[in-house]
Simulated assay, not measured.
Amino acid sequence: MKKDCIKVSKQKGEPVRRLLLELELLDNSAKINSDPGYLYLPLTRIPDDTELELLNENESIELSEADFEEHEGIPRIEDLLENVPHFEIVGDIVLIESDVPEPEKVADAIMTIKPNVKTVLAAISPVEGEFRTRRFKTIAGENRTWTTHKEYGCRYHVDLEKAYFTPRLATERARIVKQINEGETVVDMFAGVGPYSIPIAKNSPAKKVIAIDKNPFAVEFLRKNIELNSVEDIEAIEGDANIEAEKFAAVADHVIMNLPHNAHQFLDAAIKLCAPQATIHYYDITPDDDLFEGAVELIGKAAENAGRSIEIIQERVVRSYAPHQYNVCIEVKVL
């Protein structure tokens, strides 16, 4: 059968294979193919631009198409379920939605094809409350909501009922890491368990990361994850970002505002944090008939109130969030 694939030299194949696994891009239902000089790694889908940048970072790869043999005896989830629902994997836990038909059957299928999964949870609430958490019920496996998740060489202890975490922003977080220059200071206003702060401290030349969160459980995990990843130059702060901004006025070269739905309430504080020429990475949930304009207007107004102005660097859709709604990122330079 013909499939899209990554072509990479045999000498460089193993790190690319491992990264494809981490990105859930390697199609394990097909056997890896080779010729005298190259490996052909079958894909579940075409990588997006950020994923391609990551794959090309240390090894030279090529998108291609090749013939593959199927692995005999290894089922695909499509073989076990008539309709495959969306699910997320966090560590050894799989998350499904509460309205999935026959959730026990879905859980059994997932655990059959993914033997490393120990728990299947269904969300029984939306993201809610001051700390943006969800409630879950156990569908199969071990009755727990805590796990350790690995992402781009970093590890995160997290309890999904105590601190919000999604693996769906992995490539977005990696994209931000690449923008940090030597000697810069980064303020992560809503740091959670550290999925932006820790890779910035570990994989960029930043001078310092100031990681703020109001959720005491998130900050507890953040501090554990700082130690787990052996990173330095992170200051973990439990507090309200609007208040903490007073202590760090004009120190930030980058301000990360990953609090969709509510980030606009912290724009005055974000502007206050900005050193001259600083970049704000602003995340929002917006409707398809006003993806960027309304949010840019809010950012510009906050800058104007502080006697400053903005210059748009980039406007991009990160992912689909709900019908006719999108998770967007707007990056502006504060002048």
Rank of each mutant, 00 (worst) to 15 (best):
V158R: 06
E315W: 00
T185Y: 02
S204R: 12
Y282S: 07
E59N: 13
D284S: 10
R223Y: 04
L222A: 09
E51T: 14
A218K: 11
K137Y: 03
R76T: 14
E246C: 01
I237N: 03
E293N: 13
D4L: 04
V158K: 09
E315D: 11
K12W: 02
S9R: 13
I299D: 06
D233L: 11
E78M: 04
M257V: 05
E315H: 04
G141V: 02
L160P: 15
N203D: 15
A236Q: 11
P115E: 09
I212V: 15
P167R: 04
N56F: 00
N305A: 14
G300L: 00
A322V: 08
E22Y: 05
A109Y: 03
S98N: 14
A252H: 04
P167K: 06
I32Y: 04
R132E: 11
P42T: 09
G91K: 03
L21N: 15
H71F: 08
P205I: 13
E311D: 13
G194M: 05
R223P: 08
H149N: 10
P323Y: 02
R76S: 14
G13N: 08
A107E: 13
E104Y: 04
F165C: 05
D27W: 02
L228C: 01
K2H: 11
D49C: 03
E238Y: 06
V328R: 04
K272E: 10
K7I: 13
C329Q: 12
E57K: 15
Y196V: 13
T138N: 12
K2G: 00
V219R: 14
S320Q: 12
V296I: 15
V193N: 11
D284F: 02
R168G: 08
V193Q: 08
S320E: 14
Y283W: 00
R175I: 02
N262H: 11
A174Y: 08
I113G: 02
H264Q: 09
L228P: 02
P85Q: 06
D290N: 15
L298W: 00
A306Y: 00
H71S: 09
D35T: 08
A206H: 09
G141M: 01
A241D: 07
R175V: 05
G91V: 02
V251S: 14
P167G: 05
N327A: 11
N305C: 07
L52G: 06
G129W: 01
A191Y: 00
Y321P: 03
L228H: 04
D289R: 05
S60M: 09
E172T: 07
L80T: 12
D188L: 06
R132G: 12
K202Q: 09
K214V: 12
T286Q: 11
K247T: 12
N116V: 10
E172P: 00
I312W: 01
I139H: 06
H254F: 03
A218I: 05
I139Y: 03
V296W: 01
H281V: 04
K202I: 01
D108G: 14
S9A: 13
V219A: 10
E70S: 13
R316C: 09
L95P: 00
V8L: 02
G129C: 12
I200L: 05
D288L: 05
K150N: 08
N33R: 12
P85H: 06
S60V: 14
L55P: 11
I93K: 00
